[in-house]
Simulated scan of single mutants.
Amino acid sequence: MDFNSSSLFSSAHHLLTYGLDGSPIYADQFTRLNRDVYERAIELCNSHGTTAEEEAELCLGLLVAFAATIYDNGCKQQYIQNVLDRSWEVLPKLSPSLLKVRLLTYCYSEFYDESLAREAHTIINIWNKNELTLEQAEIVEELKRFEENQYPWEEVTVE
C-alpha cells in the first residue's frame, strides 16, 4: 500500500471510525488496516514536509495514525512525543484553517492542554456555523468529544 501524509490521515481516520456507520467489522480487515497504518506511520516518522502546511499534514496524519492503531512496538509514546514536538514548531507558522484546528485538536487529545482547545475554538468561532463543511463539522464534534471525555479508555463513575 502506497501512503503519503494525506492518505495516512485518511486511512487512520477510517480506522478510527471503522464500523461506526453500522457496517459490519471484519477482524481480518480491521487487523490488516491497523498493521498497515501503524507500519506506514513508523516509516513516515522520519519524513518532514517542505512547507509548514506539509509538515502540519504529516504531523496530523501521524497523530491520528498512532491514536487509531492498537499496535505498539514499545516506542509508540516516544514517536508521539516526537510528533508533538514537531507540531509545536509548526503550529505558530499556520494560518487559521481547518488544518490548524485539526492539528490543535489531535495535539489536545494527547495531553489536554486547555490552551490548545481555546486556540482551536478561536478559529472555529470565525467559521460560518450555517455553512460548515463536512470536515469542519466533523472536527468540531471530535474536539467536543475530546473535551467531554479526557479519559476515553477509563470508566468514570460518579458517586
Rank of each mutant, 00 (worst) to 15 (best):
47 S>Q: 09
48 H>A: 15
48 H>Q: 10
49 G>R: 01
49 G>C: 10
49 G>S: 10
50 T>S: 15
50 T>F: 11
51 T>H: 09
51 T>L: 08
51 T>G: 11
51 T>Y: 09
52 A>H: 10
53 E>L: 00
53 E>N: 02
54 E>I: 03
55 E>V: 02
55 E>P: 06
55 E>F: 00
55 E>A: 07
55 E>C: 03
55 E>G: 02
56 A>W: 03
57 E>S: 09
58 L>S: 04
58 L>K: 08
58 L>F: 12
59 C>W: 02
59 C>E: 02
59 C>M: 02
61 G>K: 07
61 G>E: 02
62 L>M: 08
63 L>D: 08
63 L>W: 04
64 V>Q: 07
64 V>I: 15
65 A>L: 00
66 F>R: 03
66 F>G: 07
67 A>I: 04
67 A>N: 06
67 A>F: 02
68 A>M: 02
69 T>K: 04
69 T>I: 02
71 Y>I: 12
71 Y>H: 12
71 Y>G: 09
71 Y>W: 11
71 Y>E: 12
71 Y>F: 12
72 D>L: 01
72 D>G: 09
72 D>K: 08
72 D>M: 12
72 D>V: 02
73 N>H: 15
75 C>K: 14
75 C>P: 08
75 C>F: 12
76 K>P: 06
78 Q>W: 06
78 Q>Y: 03
79 Y>V: 05
79 Y>G: 05
79 Y>C: 07
80 I>C: 03
80 I>G: 02
80 I>R: 03
81 Q>D: 15
81 Q>E: 14
82 N>C: 08
82 N>L: 14
83 V>H: 01
83 V>D: 03
84 L>Y: 07
84 L>A: 07
84 L>Q: 10
86 R>C: 13
86 R>N: 15
86 R>M: 13
87 S>R: 01
88 W>E: 09
89 E>D: 12
90 V>S: 01
92 P>W: 04
92 P>Q: 00
